[in-house]
């Protein structure tokens, strides 16, 4: 793993200051609070968690749409967490993002050809003729027709728009793509088309993905390893099949048990762990372990200090239940 490591995130923190006025008490949202993980070349790392747990913020901080408060993002041996915008140009060429909402992420006044060409123009790659050639190739890869090049995004369905978005991210031949809920806005029968396309691209180009989603069955299908986030922290991280079969952290257990299985015999006999209550506010985090307010196994100790991420077999878990 360490030889073909592409990206290492180390104790990353992203805080947002939301103090409403100069005279109000300071209010800080700790959206991402000390997350560490690694992604290898050609690997897909899945990130799951409920809305508001900070998974999208983490993805956006990695592509430097947000500036990290502290911590390191080491990409190909270089720490880019604190680099200035003007020094990030080569990084931005290697790292791309697929956005959640295919209706909001494409400029409605640009044709499909212009949208896909734009990254190449910004980075001054290829001659104009080569660019057109490349656009044609990309359209073919993502399964759109060559004559779509002159059309506008509003003429396409959600699934086709997402394909345009994917073609745009591929224009620069990136090494790493952050996919932020790329299929959650699409119908089931279309979701599978996009997932298969992403998998095919990975097989052909060896690109690595950070795949962010709340649909665990989808994440499990596409990812090699999965990280589970809760309120800005990674609570568990491991091989996807292993983590699904044998979740350790109480939150992962509850999360997996509440996934509805598309099989009536299993689904109707399945025992769901129903979590009490809802996500606490990220402004007023509980002391100690963040999950303790909803955890069925919480003890006094959980309120006193925060459990560190410790290794249990091949797995990383942050829970006192697994401390030796």
């Amino acid at each position: 793993m360490s030889e073909n490591k592409l990206l290492a995130v180390n104790q990353l923190q992203v805080y947002f200051d939301i103090t409403p006025s100069m005279f109000a008490k300071k209010a800080i949202v700790k959206a991402v609070d000390g997350v560490s993980f690694e992604i290898g070349k050609g690997e897909t790392f899945g990130l799951v968690g409920e809305s508001g747990c900070g998974k999208t913020t983490l993805g956006k901080a990695i592509v430097r749409i947000y500036n990290p408060t502290s911590g390191n993002i080491i990409f190909d041996g270089v720490d880019i967490a604190n680099k200035k915008n003007k020094d990030l140009k080569s990084y931005r060429k290697q790292v791309q993002m697929v956005f959640q909402d295919p209706y909001a992420s494409l400029n409605p006044r640009m044709t499909v050809g212009e949208i896909i060409k734009e990254p190449m123009e910004i980075h001054n790659l290829y001659t104009p003729a080569e660019r057109n050639q490349k656009v044609q190739e990309l359209l073919e890869i993502v399964g759109l027709k060559p004559d779509h090049i002159r059309r506008y995004p509003n003429e396409f369905s959600g699934g086709q728009r997402q394909r345009i978005g994917i073609a745009r991210t591929l224009a620069l031949d990136p090494d790493f793509v952050v996919c932020d809920e790329p299929v959650s806005a699409l119908d089931v029968s279309i979701q599978a088309q996009i997932i298969n396309l992403l998998e095919k691209i990975q097989r052909d180009t060896g690109v690595s993905y950070l795949f962010i989603a709340h649909d665990i069955s989808m994440v499990k299908h596409i990812s090699h390893r999965i990280g589970v986030m809760y309120l800005g922290k990674l609570v568990e991280c491991g091989e996807s099949e292993d983590l699904y079969r044998n979740p350790l952290h109480p939150y992962t257990k509850a999360l997996l048990s509440s996934v509805p299985i598309p099989d009536p015999d299993i689904a109707k006999s399945k025992k769901r762990i129903i979590l009490e209550g809802e996500l606490p506010s990220p402004i007023n985090l509980p002391s100690g372990c963040r999950f303790r307010t909803r955890c069925p196994y919480a003890t006094e100790r959980c309120g006193e200090s925060e459990p560190p991420l410790t290794q249990v077999g091949t797995r990383d878990v942050s829970c006192f239940l697994y401390e030796k």
Binding site: S157, V188, S189, A192, Q193, I195, E199, S217, I261, P262
Partner: peptide
């Protein structure tokens, strides 16, 4: 049914999407 992934199955086979819209 073929294009939803059943997380309980161990197979890593590709999903079978329905082409078109």
């Amino acid at each position: 049914l073929a294009c939803v992934h059943n997380p309980d199955s161990t197979s890593k086979e590709a999903l079978v999407p329905i082409p078109g819209s």
